[in-house]
Design a protein around this nucleic acid. Structure first.
Lengths: 240, 240
DNA sequence: CAGTGGTCTAGACCACCTA
DNA sequence: AGGTGGTCTAGACCACTGG
């Protein structure tokens, strides 16, 4: 899987941290020693360690050495939906997730949406509302807007399965990044109807703008869930 | 400010993107041309571009070139509290933030807190509850636990100003990273009392574990606010 | 095919930390 | 003082892209 030398070194070092060969709060062997052991140059070791540090497993300090941190970062990173560029189906397993299409229309964007997606007034967008069910229980209510130009031939059949798989595999689009805003909200009528929220049940909403690697915005969406059904996790690593 | 060559190059390129010298959806000059212009090696240019790419402003593709993406990442990054290693006082300006100390005690941790902070049963922790006010309006209700061993001499006076400034400047501690969990919740009695939440007002809670660069956990805390007073933003960049 | 970015090296110098 | 990681270089080779 890992192709480059620095990836192989990084993977091996991560494995050793997980296996407690390099226990937390100790120093790693210095870069020259690692270079000798792996038979690569010190620069390559450094590049490998940079990556591991960026994931929060180690911390390097000039003049001192390289600390092994705890495995919190590691443990929590796995189930973190913060890096969720894949869709819900991929996160939870496609056999558990089903989708009920509430709305699937094509429309012209209003001024706000034009601005958010960076498109012209006369450029059509899909307006999609889906209820995502996990193990047949209402889970997330999604409202999604996509420019038609970037996603031709969208169908109900695709929306019932995985939109993200269609974008990635069939249209060969690659996500460059996403901006997300998370906040709590009062339930609206749709939440009550589809998510089975009560009149005062708190709702968690994630607003999301996704762009492609060529800089074009591909999706603006909101995803709402009842307060005790899902939370959102984030790992922040200082610097790097 | 910027010391190294690659930082200076990165800053200059970012400035050019902001100033539209390199407009979105165009290609940057290739690395050799940039190396010649800045009078540095291509490796140094690459390192600079790696950093800019990690911030979501550009995307590099081997065999093709380096795209300039939009400025969404940039615009939104500025007011994003996702990278909030500094405290509330630093984020909002210390003249606007005041703190009311509700509780300030020393206690032994329960099993859950021992596990979260990675400390022994007999190691004392501070148990602190503060109401943070923004422009004299209730804003955030914080519940904070810190090991006494790592933070000697904590006082009410410090808590009324900035805890983070004390940790950083006086104790010279450096944060390595943080793990955060964001979710919505029902209001409890304290929310109603201090945040002026109604009986059914949704609350946004951020749970947070912070560790130092040497791997020791320094803080476990929760921060709660009324649903329409604050949201949380995250920037995710693919790969890197 | 020519051009792009990605990787890798050996070697040099530097800033920083501990002692 | 000696050791650490950080930076930087010149040069080489590779994989990928487009025409």
């Amino acid at each position: 899987m890992a192709q480059t030398k620095y990836q192989r070194v990084a993977d091996e070092i991560k494995q050793r941290i997980i296996a407690n060969v390099y226990p937390p709060r100790t120093l790693l062997p210095d870069q020259n020693a690692l270079a000798a052991e792996f038979g690569v140059s010190r620069i390559t070791i450094k590049k490998a360690l940079d990556g591991v540090a960026r994931e929060g497993l180690i911390y390097k300090k000039s003049g001192l050495g390289t600390y092994v941190l705890g495995d919190i970062a590691l443990r929590d990173r796995d189930d973190s939906p913060a890096n969720a560029f894949d869709g819900l189906s991929e996160q939870q397993g496609s056999e558990r997730v089903t989708s009920q299409i509430i709305k699937f229309e094509v429309a012209f964007p209003n001024a706000d949406l034009q601005d958010k997606l960076g498109i012209a007034e006369n450029e059509a967008v899909y307006d999609i509302r889906r209820l995502r069910l996990l193990d047949d229980e209402p889970f997330i209510l999604e409202h999604t807007f996509l420019p038609v130009r970037l996603v031709p031939n969208l169908s109900r059949q695709i929306l019932e399965k995985s939109l993200y798989m269609f974008l990635h595999q069939d249209l060969n689009l690659t996500f460059g990044g996403a901006y997300r805003r998370i906040h709590a909200d009062l339930p609206d009528e749709l939440d009550q109807q589809y998510l089975k929220a009560g009149e005062t049940t708190p709702v968690l909403e994630t607003e999301q703008l996704i762009w492609l690697i060529n800089g074009q915005n591909i999706e603006y969406s909101t995803a709402r869930n009842v307060y005790d059904r899902r939370s959102y996790t984030v790992l922040d690593v200082n610097d790097f």
